[in-house]
Amino acid sequence: MQSRLHDEDTFIDLGSGVGQVVLQVASSTPCKLCYGIEKADVPYLYSVQMDVNFNKWMQWYGKTFSEYKLEKGDFLSEEMRERINKASIIFVNNFAFGPSVDHQLKERFANLKEGAKIVSSKAFCPLNFKITNRNLNDVGSIMRVQEIKPMGGSVSWTGKPVTYYLHTIDRTQRGAILTDFM
């Protein structure tokens, strides 16, 4: 997949762990801001060291990178709502999240701007989601979802290739259905 991130994009990693995804995006794209938030103490402490090493090596090699920030906190907190709403690209490794966290994330994603993208390790709605008058309030009614198959040689935290899902906020489908019901 070719990089299509631009200098007006804001990238957020929800549950950024040690920060490697945020640093990779910052080093390889012109994003306006790359942001990561991690709740767990141990991964966050490792991200502090990753930050130091990243800056040292980027300076050593004379490489430029996008502005980024790694923070400790809860991506489900009220303070994060606005930041999530303004993001153009969100990454969330929700593979191990339970239904409650996934549901809360779906509620947050309902307010994303048109065209915003979410990359996740577990789909937030079925690939074959069909909009009906019974599910118009489901976040699936404003998302186009596609499966991203693993590329050869890819790596993951499991030691096996992982499939990701790309969700694009697209309210046009829902609008057409609403018109049909009126």
Rank of each mutant, 00 (worst) to 15 (best):
M143F: 15
Q146V: 07
T179Q: 15
T64N: 07
S120A: 15
M50E: 01
Y165G: 08
D74C: 12
C34H: 10
I148E: 05
I90G: 02
R171V: 14
V162L: 11
V92K: 00
Q20D: 01
H167Q: 06
H103N: 12
R83P: 04
D180C: 14
M58Y: 12
G15D: 08
R81I: 07
D13K: 02
Y35N: 03
R174Y: 13
G73L: 13
L70G: 02
G15S: 09
G98M: 07
L76G: 06
S3I: 15
M50L: 00
Y44Q: 08
L76K: 02
N94H: 07
S66H: 03
D102W: 01
T163R: 07
A110C: 05
D138R: 06
N55C: 07
G15W: 15
D9H: 10
R81H: 11
V48Y: 01
V48H: 02
V52M: 09
W157R: 10
D7V: 08
G98E: 11
S154Y: 02
L45K: 12
H167G: 03
E107F: 04
F75Y: 05
G98H: 09
S120G: 01
K32I: 02
I12D: 03
Q59Y: 00
I177Y: 14
E8H: 07
I12A: 06
S100D: 14
T10I: 12
F54W: 10
K69V: 13
E71H: 06
V25K: 06
Y164M: 11
A176D: 14
Y68V: 12
C34M: 11
D41W: 09
Q59K: 11
G153K: 12
F11P: 13
F91Y: 14
A123V: 04
D138Y: 06
T168R: 09
V92W: 01
N133W: 10
E147V: 01
T29Q: 06
K130E: 15
I89Q: 14
G175E: 15
K86W: 01
V139E: 09
I131D: 05
D170H: 13
R171E: 15
F181E: 05
K69L: 08
I89V: 13
L5I: 15
A176L: 14
F129T: 13
S154E: 03
P126F: 02
I37A: 02
Y164R: 09
T163G: 00
I118S: 03
S47F: 01
Q104S: 14
E67F: 10
E78W: 00
I142Q: 08
V119N: 00
T132W: 10
F65G: 10
L112W: 12
T158D: 04
M80E: 11
D9N: 14
K130W: 03
T132C: 09
G73D: 00
K106D: 02
E79I: 07
I148S: 04
F54H: 04
A26G: 04
E107G: 05
M151V: 00
V22C: 08
S27D: 10
R174D: 15
Q2L: 14
E67D: 11
